[in-house]
Design a protein around this nucleic acid. Sequence first.
DNA 1: CTGAATCCTACCGGATACTG
DNA 2: CAGTATCCGGTAGGATTCAG
Lengths: 122, 122
Amino acid sequence: MQLPDAYSANCPTRMVLDRIADKWAVLLLGLLAREPMRFNRLRREVEGLSQKMLAQTLRSLERDGLVSRSAFATVPVTVEYAITPLGRTLADTVDALRVWAESHMPEVTANQLRYDAEKAAA
Amino acid sequence: MQLPDAYSANCPTRMVLDRIADKWAVLLLGLLAREPMRFNRLRREVEGLSQKMLAQTLRSLERDGLVSRSAFATVPVTVEYAITPLGRTLADTVDALRVWAESHMPEVTANQLRYDAEKAAA
DNA sequence: CTGAATCCTACCGGATACTG
DNA sequence: CAGTATCCGGTAGGATTCAG
């Protein structure tokens, strides 16, 4: 059976989704879109983000060329992360999601409450 | 420095991300944005989507009011899923991601190859 | 300070079987 | 056809420890 390209296993849509699906990546990209930051600063900014996931996520963002890493030979070492031009284009696109969220989340929440109430009634 | 609301644990941005992070949800929303479909049709359209995840994802989409479910008392029963107006606004927003993917994924892939090559060299 | 490595657990999600 | 229930393995990811 042949599937439409748009929904086969390795279409562009899926590939970008696998990246966006990483919520830490999106959050970090959003932060770095504002200003460059260092490792522990990022760690403190994002609530609930473990050190392991931070390192791991920064690695993949760097690999994708969405974020750049600069190390300075101070003592102790200083490392700064910054968004790249490519990263910025994605951040801008993703920002549309934030806008959607802010204007529609109340409605979604209301829907959930209603759904749960109807469920409980049955 | 006080954490910006945007990155605390339950901000709107995070909530929408938790939804977008579910790639099956996004894929289904995209399909239903085109035309209403029945359960097994959706199952056939999306490669690699298990029956369990399909049912589960449809439940949560319905709960959020992004998709509507209509059952018809035929024999055997017929159930049709359709996108709601609210769902359509999200689908449109998410579509921007697809556009980004199609124009920038080649560059990302190139970056990955270069990163891996430099890594291997070291 | 910026990580990498190890361990360990919770949960995601696939396979299978059963029901209205 | 449209699901739900159960089992169960793989893995994401947290906690902890160590290193440059």
